[in-house]
Write a protein that binds this DNA or RNA. Sequence first.
DNA 1: TGCGTGATATTCT
DNA 2: GAATATCACGCAG
Length: 185
Amino acid sequence: MARSLLGQRLVRVDRGRRLAGIIVETEAYLGIPDLAAHTSGGRRTPRNEPMWLDGGHLYVYFTYGMHHCANVVAQCRGEPVAALLRAIEPTEGLKLMYKRRHSALRDTDLCSGPAKLCAALGLDRRHSGVDLCRDKHLFIEQVRRRAFASDKIAVLPRIGVAYAKQWADKPLRFTLKDSPYVSRF
DNA sequence: TGCGTGATATTCT
DNA sequence: GAATATCACGCAG
């Protein structure tokens, strides 16, 4: 699912205004056995409760005292597997995004990181648990029917999970090759 | 390269 | 109920 999200459009309708972008970078978090996942070892807490819902729900968490990150739940209820949205290519509502991303100088700075994209779209914990398949203000539009061919996708280690022992270096990060909108790690 | 920053999980009383 | 450790990052320098 992390692969097939690439090229699809993430949309938030914020007080009537559309904010949107094409997903260009994701990371897979593989649930209970994955030492880098919030649900590692079967941990189930109020924070990560949305991870345990049906696929299509959104899990947003707050971290480092100032950042939010958003994940799309992937599997059936009870299997806490998800994809972290790491970067989008902003396509609609850039003006409002710049307002929220004070330090951004170029379009490529706007949403090129998991916390940047949340800031640009104004996503926070209020959006954790939203059902993307039903919600009218937050959803994913299908732009393409098939996932990109594998030669269009770069597969890389995940970011910021050095502590996760044997899971730290697994190739679970997917980017659209040559997109200038990916995070710059 | 080095922090800021505060919620959360975990571990203690 | 309280203390502590940790963190799926971004920015200034």
